[in-house]
Design a protein around this nucleic acid. Structure first.
Length: 434
RNA sequence: GCCGCGUUCGUCUAGUGGCCUAGGACAUCGGGCUUUCAUCCCGGAAAUCACGGGUUCGACUCCCGUACGCGGUACCA
């Protein structure tokens, strides 16, 4: 039997970070079994539709690398089909009309039990607790229950992978499958992801749309990897896993039954790990693409591709997110802003005098400057003015960038160029004199 | 309230009756390396395995109960 999974979000907003895990697991199961992974948009609640949501979902899945097979399936296109089945149930006497809607008459005797692939466990309900429910709303659109049963039967989805918030509706679905005479698919219900305060993960936890994580500078691979680990660990307990490795090792039976808490800090760490293990040339491209994405598709004047290429190896160990690239490097092409407090923090006396000597040394040094001579000269000057080499280099850093944290000093100066460097140290001096 | 599901360091987790005086990762703390910040390396602290009863020679692991948490209880998904 072919394995067919589907991700079925409702377009009530942009793709939420929690949805990534559901989509990913469905994707992994499909790929693991050389099956099909489809995207179905559950847009039957016409009042809650958000313009652009479908586009965001499609675009985000693409960015994540979770490519779905076939065309996007829209439930709103399938209205007629659901109505036919509702009619059929009506004719069968399994449903009835009431207040403009079609209701399903539940079986009140016995029990409904289903097997869940997550944790390989049995879930049981007493049918006496099951009230009749609406399958076709008065606007002619189906409710989730009818749409799910009809679609997943017609699409031959197996297993059905969805959030645990659906567990309580299981008896409804099973009854529907049974009275329609259809085979019940296997189900896999994923525990709901919680925020740090242990309530359902939502926008107010700062854990928002995937597109916002993208804007924050997170890598698709890191997001995927982190989300995969939220409730699942591979047998060998490894943490950094490529998509292919996940496909090989993933098993629904190993997914935890308890609700995991989303922890951005670990995501950030993982993102940093991914950045560090990326090849420089690829990382350069990613930074460039990221900057372009931030600018809404426009290519900014600075940094240029060449600047990014030079800067990439220098910042690689210092950034956790692509966005960290900007504050670390923008002093190079932005106008240098000085802050008295930053100079004072150095704790050096005679700043003006020393700066004067620095300028002299820089001007005297043979161009192009070389790292070794540069270091030697300034270690010498540090001795001469009786400050530590450490303080000397830190002073240079601040004079040249206005910041106390930058990529490696000499390399930054090289990108800046001799002329600009001298100009900035002079500017620093006049700032201090003013 | 009722129904369903769950409960190992702050967080993600390993653990399927003896290997556990509970292991790893993130975060945190201390140290090393270092011209900043990082990276990297070393080390520490951190779970009476929610609690109470069983079962067993033996329980984190099995059973029951309690507490707590989460989900559902819509013509929302």
């Amino acid at each position: 039997m072919e394995v067919k999974t589907r991700f079925a979000p409702s377009p009530t907003g942009n793709l939420h970070i929690g949805g990534v895990r559901t989509a990913l697991y469905a994707y992994l199961i499909a790929k693991k079994n050389k099956g099909v992974f489809a995207l179905r948009i559950e847009d039957t609640d016409r009042g809650r539709l958000v313009p652009g949501a479908v586009e965001d979902i499609v675009e985000t899945l693409k960015w994540l690398g979770l490519n779905f097979d076939g065309e996007v399936i829209l439930q709103s296109d399938r209205k007629k089909i659901y109505q036919e089945y509702a009619q059929k149930l009506l004719e069968q006497g399994a449903a009835y009309k009431g207040e403009g809607a079609v209701w399903f008459k539940t079986v009140k005797e016995g029990k409904t039990a289903t097997f869940d692939l997550v944790g390989n466990r049995q879930i049981e309900f007493d049918n006496s607790t099951q009230d009749d429910f609406v399958i076709l709303k008065s606007d002619g659109f189906p409710t989730y229950h009818l749409a799910h049963v009809v679609d997943d039967h017609l699409m031959q989805t197996n297993p059905v992978i969805r959030g645990a918030e659906w567990i309580s509706s299981l008896p409804k679905h099973v009854m529907l499958f049974n009275t329609l005479g259809w085979e019940i698919p296997n189900y896999a219900h994923l525990p709901v992801i919680l925020g740090p305060d242990k309530s359902k993960l939502s926008k107010r936890h700062g854990a928002k749309a995937v597109s916002e994580f993208r804007q924050d500078g997170f890598l698709a691979e890191a997001i995927l990897n982190y989300m995969a680990l939220l409730g699942w660990t591979p047998k060998n307990n490894r943490e950094i896993l490529s998509l292919n490795e996940m496909i090989k090792m993933f098993d629904l039976a190993d997914v935890h039954l308890s609700n995991p808490v989303f922890d951005v800090t670990k995501l950030e760490w993982m993102n940093g790990e991914y950045i560090r293990k990326t090849q420089n040339s690829k990382l350069k491209t990613q930074i460039l693409e990221y900057l372009k994405y931030l600018a809404g598709g426009a290519i900014p004047d600075h940094p240029t591709e060449g600047e990014v290429a030079k800067l990439t190896p220098l910042v690689k160990d210092r950034i956790k997110k692509l966005s960290d690239f900007i504050p670390l490097t923008d002093f190079i092409w932005e106008k240098c802003e000085y802050d008295m407090a930053v100079f004072e923090k150095l704790g050096i006396k005679n700043l003006g005098e020393i700066l004067d000597k620095i300028i002299y040394t820089l001007e005297e040094m043979k161009q192009p400057w070389e790292g070794e001579t540069f270091e030697k000269k300034f270690r010498g000057l540090a001795d001469e003015v009786k400050i530590s080499a450490k303080d000397m280099f830190q002073l240079l850093r601040v004079a040249v960038s206005g910041q106390s944290v930058t990529p490696p000093l000499f390399e930054s100066i090289q990108i800046l160029g001799e002329e600009e460097t001298i100009k900035r140290v002079k500017a620093a001096l006049s700032f201090l004199m003013a």
